[in-house]
Design a protein around this nucleic acid. Structure first.
Length: 767
DNA sequence: GAAGTGATGTTTTTT
DNA sequence: ACATCACTTC
């Protein structure tokens, strides 16, 4: 049987149309990965060499899964497909071309912490008030500038940006941005955004280099296209969108699952893609059958996402049967929430014969995991937390990696700052400041200053020792393999000794982590499992560092063991579980207070909720708590509007919603207005009335209610609304398909005039 | 230069 | 609640 027979008709078309531009709009659980992998297999079957195919994903996990699944179809050849994350593939290309942009192939990759530290140092040097110049804010400003292809120069010239900065009382951000770039370059370092930005720049300035890659990658596939930012799409376009290009590109995405707008992702890219490639015979396929979840879940998701204004029209459906209704649990405290979750997990395991691995608990913020942990532990439910502090972000691990980084690239200032006085060797802050100042004045790296500095005898001696350690390490890094070199460096730097002396439980853990890191390096040297076209590996320390720079904790999945998964909704994207708990469904938490004030922010939160509930195959449980500790203080919250947005008939029991709640939980007037106004693009977005549960407004017996056809409703009518009672139609506006009535409800408790979209509202004409 | 103390911000999400 | 950071004291 051919693999093509495993596909439904739409999927099959998406696979078979290998040439020319293709957009696949893929709903949750619609077999997206299957389409991508089979498509690659199919391209190869047509005689294309694996190394002519470039497949880009966002996470290492997705990349690995892809690689594995291609192997299953085409065997060993899969290794030669260029498949990986944007960042890793681009980093690899940049190492090859480094000299053309003034970098060494051994450039360091700065992680977020490094970036913040550099920015902090610059703020300090510029004598700016760091309570005003918040490092996080600035980091994200710089990051989004890069992601939107705005150079420091353009930034300085951009009135809108400057205006924003002035309003935030930070007029010097553009100067910080400029300095930051210079600093990174001087240190031979790139941050995450640079891996994209520098490649763009490289191709921009060197047409012959670009040409080389255009010829190499004849077929391009992009996963999770809704998460790409302007810069990423810019790179993609450079690669395939040019005169005479065959434009063999396939992008797969789901606008409803776009949850990374906060870091520059924009679904505008999907729209632009359609526009850019439509003159070249773009084909659009919509995968609408959901193979993952049962109907209550799929329909609830459909209904909720309809509250969003902008979206590509599609109707996701399931043929997996009605299934269980969605369970809602309300508790008084976050502790009780944890208890109920643990309780329900035990119950479900028995009743439905679930294993722990079938179950996931998803939350909006990582901080919520603590209470949950406590109760899972009490109930003896094994669990594993994903996200949060990654292994590579632990202090002791970063310490050793700092030394390793210096061995490979002594210009790396952040590594130098980290380890120059750890273990303590008498080079304190004042000396460091002096070095840093000298470096700034003479435009040298701190390392170069160290080599020539003239300090007091004692400090001078310490500096000498340190310099020697780094130089020796550098030599070993060149002559030995990664593991041998790392062992040498760990000993020589006295790091092992330092942690050996710490006999506390914590200290022992640290030593253990250090050894785990060294073991990891050992297996890197011994293993050649992951040798692919994009990673022709050598076993040097430099090569090792390049490999781990882009790893996160979710990557070393030791999937042995039976545990319940705890993770943020963001990191759950792409996963599925038989039973899913989404916890903390409260206003200001989910939707987050950070984004609930703007319509776009709220829409993104809703998409996030959409992602959360569509992870569930059979059982979905939503929980919320009336109170919760935040920053050590008790906070009182209301139930999330997202629960309200699920039609009641998909919920198991509405008692959790009813008891103890009053009109507080009905949609607020402001919300009614915002959702009722049709968007300019005319796509769906509507206030959808639900049968009221409890409300101060008059109750109407639903059995006696009979909605009148919306086109019969006229100005002056008196109408009956299930929730708001009797009202008089004051005005009707909007286009013929989107008529909106302004209705005066006598009995409604809040803001009596309401704007209601007739297309969706159920109103009965009384007279 | 190190170690201890109090104030302050932090929690949205990640390559 | 927790961590980080500035400020004090030794």
């Amino acid at each position: 049987m051919s693999y093509l027979d495993e596909l439904n008709p739409v999927q099959r078309q998406a696979v078979e149309n290998t040439d020319g531009p293709v957009l696949v709009v893929a709903g949750p659980g619609s077999g997206k990965t299957r389409v991508l992998t089979y498509r690659i297999a199919h391209i190869m079957e047509k005689g294309v060499a694996p190394w002519e195919i470039l497949s880009l994903t966002f996470t290492n996990k997705a990349a690995r899964e892809m690689q594995e699944r291609i192997s299953k179809v085409v065997g060993d050849k899969a290794r030669n497909v260029w498949s990986g994350t944007f960042h890793s593939i681009f980093a690899r290309i940049l190492r090859v071309e480094a000299d053309k942009i003034g970098y060494s192939p051994n450039f360091t990759i700065y992680d977020t912490e490094d970036t913040k530290s550099v920015i902090g140092a610059i703020i300090k040097e510029m004598n700016l008030d760091k309570t005003v110049y918040n490092v996080n804010t600035i980091r994200s400003r710089i990051s989004s500038a890069k992601s939107s292809l705005i150079t420091p120069r353009l930034y300085a010239e951009n009135e809108a940006m400057k205006m924003q900065d002035r309003q935030a009382k930070m007029p010097f951000i553009s100067d910080i941005y400029l300095k930051y770039g210079e600093r990174c370059k001087r240190a031979g370092a790139m941050d995450f955004d640079d891996l994209l930005y520098r490649l763009y720049e490289l191709w921009q300035k060197n047409p012959e280099v670009l040409d080389k890659y255009r010829k190499r990658f004849r077929y391009l596939l992009v996963d999770e296209f809704q998460d790409t930012n302007t810069l990423q799409y810019g790179i993609i376009r450079k690669l395939v969108h040019f005169e005479g290009s065959p434009r063999n590109i396939c992008v797969v995405g789901d606008d409803a699952q776009s949850i990374y707008a906060f870091r520059g992702a924009t679904i505008q890219n999907i729209l632009d893609f359609e526009k850019d490639f439509s003159p070249f015979g773009i084909k659009v396929f919509k995968l609408e059958e959901n193979y993952r979840s049962t109907e209550h879940i799929v329909q609830a998701a459909n209904e909720v996402i309809r509250f969003n204004k902008k979206q590509i029209q599609k109707k996701i459906w399931s043929s997996k049967g009605t299934g269980q209704k969605i369970k809602v649990i309300k508790t008084m405290t976050d502790a009780e929430e944890g208890k109920r979750v643990a309780d329900t997990i035990s119950e479900q395991r028995n009743r439905f014969h679930l294993r722990n691995t079938d179950i996931a608990v998803l939350y909006r913020t990582n901080a919520q995991s603590r209470v949950l942990e406590e109760y899972l532990r009490r109930y003896n439910i094994p669990y594993k937390i994903f996200g949060g502090l990654s292994f590579y972000q632990r202090k002791e691990v970063k310490d050793l990696i700092g030394y390793l980084r210096l061995a490979v690239n002594p210009k790396d200032e952040e590594a130098l700052r980290r380890v120059i006085n750890f273990p303590k060797r008498g080079i304190g802050d004042s000396t460091l400041d002096k070095i840093s100042e000298l470096a700034g004045q003479q435009n040298l790296t701190m390392w170069e200053v160290l080599l020539h500095i003239d300090a007091g005898t004692r400090t001078q001696k310490s500096i000498h020792e340190f310099v020697k350690i780094v130089q020796d390490s550098g030599q070993k890094a060149e002559s030995l393999n990664a593991h041998e070199a790392a062992m040498y460096i760990a000993k020589q730097s006295k790091l092992i000794e330092e942690y050996n002396q710490d006999k506390t439980v914590e200290g022992l853990g640290r030593l253990e982590n250090l050894n785990a890191l060294l073991d990891g390096i050992k297996s890197f040297v011994e293993d050649d499992e992951f040798e692919t076209a994009s990673e022709q590996q050598n076993k040097s320390l430099a090569s090792y560092l390049q490999n781990i720079a882009l790893l996160t904790d979710q990557d070393d999945e030791s999937k042995n063991g039976d545990y319940v998964t705890l993770m943020s909704v963001h990191s759950a994207k792409g996963l599925e579980f038989k039973s899913v708990f989404v916890v903390g469904l409260e206003e200001k938490l989910f939707p987050s207070f950070m984004s609930m004030d703007t319509p776009d922010g709220l829409d993104e939160e809703r998409r996030l909720f959409y992602v959360a509930i569509t992870r569930a195959e059979q059982y979905l449980t939503l929980t919320f708590s009336m109170s919760r500790y935040k920053f050590g203080q008790m906070q009182y919250n209301e139930m999330s509007r997202f629960i309200e947005e699920i039609p009641r008939d998909h919920l198991e029991s509405t008692s959790a919603l009813r008891s103890g709640f009053s009109a507080d939980f009905e949609p607020t007037p402001s919300r009614t207005t915002t959702t009722a106004v049709p968007s300019k693009s005319g796509v769906s977005g509507a206030f959808k009335p639900r049968p009221a549960s409890s409300n101060a407004a008059p109750r109407i017996d639903p059995a006696l209610f009979k909605a009148s056809p919306s086109d019969q409703i006229k100005v002056g009518n008196t109408v009956l609304h299930l929730k708001f009672g009797e009202g008089k139609v004051l005005n009707i506006d909007g286009g013929k398909d989107n008529r909106i009535a302004t209705i005066f409800f006598e009995a409604a408790d809040d803001g009596q005039e309401k704007r209601i979209m007739l297309k969706f509202a159920k109103l009965q004409i009384v007279e």
